[in-house]
Structure formats: C-alpha cells, structure tokens
Amino acid sequence: MSEAADPMSSSTLDRDVHADTQATWQSLLERIPYARHLGLEVQHSGTRVQVHLPYRDALIGNIMLPAVHGGAIGGLIEITARIAAQSRDARARRPRILDCNVDYLRSARARSTYAAAEIVRQGRRTTLVHVSCWQDRASTPVAHGRVQLLFETVPNGKTREQQ
C-alpha cells in the first residue's frame, strides 16, 4: 500500500495495477466456499481494492438493533486478509490463518460493509495484515482487525494436521 513501494506510480499505471489486483483477488475469493456463502465480492473504488459484504437478513447477530453479527465482520476481515496475503505470494499458495484479533469500534448496522487490507509485514513465512471495515465512510470504521498468516513450508508434502 505504501507509495514508496511503487516508484513508477502514475494514475494510468495505478488504474491498471488496481484492475489487475481486483481480478487476482476476485479469482482467489471465488475458490473459497465460505466467501461465496457470505456473498463477498471484490470492488475497485478510487485508489483502493476493497471487499464488499452485501447485507442479507441471514447476517444479523442482534435482532433488536438490528446489527450485523460480529462473526460475519470477523469473517470479512479474515478472508480479506487471506486474499491480500495470498495475492502477494509468488506461487499464490493458500496461507494458513494463525491468529486474528478484531476490535469492534461501533455496531455494524443492517447495510453493506466494506473492508480494505494493508500488508504490514511480508516475511519469508508469515504475513501480517491490518484490515479496516466500514459502512458509510472509511473514516468511521466499524471494526479493525489484525491477522497473522503462515505460508507453510512442508518438507515431505504432507500436511501438519496430524501433528
């Protein structure tokens, strides 16, 4: 996300880069059954690529307010972090989410929610991603999340599930 990382930056190039990122994110998102279940879609808005969680009644967590379930917001954050990290991997490997910490800033009302990711650190094995979620304006976020992901190095081609 940092401007310094993009020395050739020009508005035309930015647009191409973002259109490319959007296509990559969309193809990664389409492989995730739970992302399809939530109805997530990738959007391109101004200078950023974002993930949209369209409102549905099935997302409600508090019938009285009403408000979107904190778990649905958590899912939006985790999946956005995952595709942001995965799109940066040279082999587009699927990372494993190690941990996720969400701070809820205000209740998410019964309408569209959006998420944008910032890669804080991309290491050899782990990637740390910050995700911001908002509804009306990006300047009044409903939640912030930080997600740590691992690109596993598996020497014998076996998963570590049995360990």
Binding site: R31, I32, P33, Y34, A72, G75, I79, C100
Partner: peptide, 18 residues
C-alpha cells in the same frame, strides 16, 4: 459451504470465529 477452499476438506476459520 463452510469450507476454506474448493480443493480442501478444511473448515474456514471464520466459521470457528462466529
């Protein structure tokens, strides 16, 4: 529909989160 990937019999972590 709650899986993490079309190619894996693994649950999406977000389901555990919810």
């Amino acid at each position: 529909e709650l899986r993490a990937d079309d190619a894996a019999e693994e649950l999406c972590t977000s389901v555990l989160y919810s």
